[in-house]
Amino acid sequence: MERHSFITISQSDPRPLYLQVVEQIQRRVAVGDLVPGAELPSIRELASSLQVSVITIKRAYLELEHNGIISTRHGKGSVIADSPGLQSSVQEREFRDHLEKAVQLGMLLGMSRAEIQKKIAEAYDHAQRGIK
């Protein structure tokens, strides 16, 4: 079927398309499906197979490069960066991204630093009870 089916994008997802690509590649790195050195499709290939604009994929790759997840060699395409501990750092990044979003939402709702900290502690307790 699709040539690069490890990424699926959704028009109904309110997040920008490029961010969906970034997050899904990060996710595949975090779970170890994409290992350091793994080749990524070229920007235009991926754009074509996902039927999204070239600019979307370009922006996603720039973002991934900026985050140190991929490295792009001019004319040779992009590969998953060969840096030690990439998988765990991506996992940590994912966690931090989610957390930041939650904190931003809290700030929008007018919560103070202490209130947000308290909510995080409560969420931790709640999740632990769930696991047990």
């Binding site: 028009q11 235009r44 754009a47 074509s48 039927q51 999204v52 604009s53 070239v54 600019i55």
Partner: peptide
């Protein structure tokens, strides 16, 4: 447009198409 020397201009009143594939 996998070939970077080729260009597309297209019109649509379906903004979803445009949003998806336009640069």
């Amino acid at each position: 447009v996998e070939d970077e020397n080729r260009t597309i201009l297209y019109s649509s009143h379906n903004t979803q198409d445009v949003e998806q594939i336009s640069d």
